[in-house]
Amino acid sequence: MKYKVKKDYGRWLWVLPAIALVICLFVYPLGSQVFYSFTNKTLIKSTYGIRGLSNYTAILTDPDFWLALWTSVKWTVLSLLFQMLIGFSAALALNSIKNKVARQVYRILLIIPWAFPTIAIAIIWKWLLNGIYGFIPTLLTQMGITGQLPQFLSTPDLVMPTLVVVNVWFGFPLIMVNVLAALQTVSQDQYEAAQIDGARKLHMFWYITLPHIRNVIGLLVVLRTIWVFNSFDIIYMITGGGPANVSTTLPIYIYNLGWVNKFVGRSSAAAVILLIILLTICAAYFCVLNKWEKEADS
């Protein structure tokens, strides 16, 4: 196209609304958040002053912060591990079902959790796990597996595993659908060629399928890590971070600090720390992904 022959200012009109929106509703609020992290702003008083790094030292010496960070790491790693395991194996199983109708039906059944609004996830699981009338505790007791109704959401040792199960339920369909889409891009010729050469199923999977979809899996792990690490709604609505902070992840810690206790400055500092952690994870992942891409090209 020859648009660049004369100076073409008209083209900016296309992207201007989007750029303006991102600046006003994204760059500016983010900037102000970083600025607040150096002040002693609260939501109660309108005046505030600059306090340097004192918010950061306060956060980094707060044992609750480290506890929340540790909870976040557990939450992310466990959720992701099981989401990947189940999502991936479900995609493989679904892919080897030959009957098209059956495959479509299973596919739709399996993606139901992904479509659930978070508030509905919270309510239905609270109801299923309810300590008096819940389906799961009652069933377990009726089958004689537990002596009395298990209290999944108020026993400190059970809370995090239970929340992880809920998160795996919600998250595995996304992995499954993406892996399924990637599996369909592997050309059948390669399998046929391998079959003629007498390759075994496992070898075919290891040497043809896996290298082909490695990048998709890599990207999925990046995206999911970040989403799960950032996720606030599920835990907040199911347990609110309790009992006694057992399920307080970093986003909930930030929310409580800023919104409940009104310490805007300190909560902003914690938010900036969260961002730095995420950027580090992202950078590390993208390094690995780039390396893979180069390997694939060479």
Partner: peptide, 17 residues
């Protein structure tokens, strides 16, 4: 990048704005 952004980070700025 904006999509991977933690929603919680912008809560207070949005409330203020």
């Amino acid at each position: 990048m904006t999509y991977m952004f933690p929603a919680i980070v912008l809560v207070i700025p949005y409330a203020v704005v």
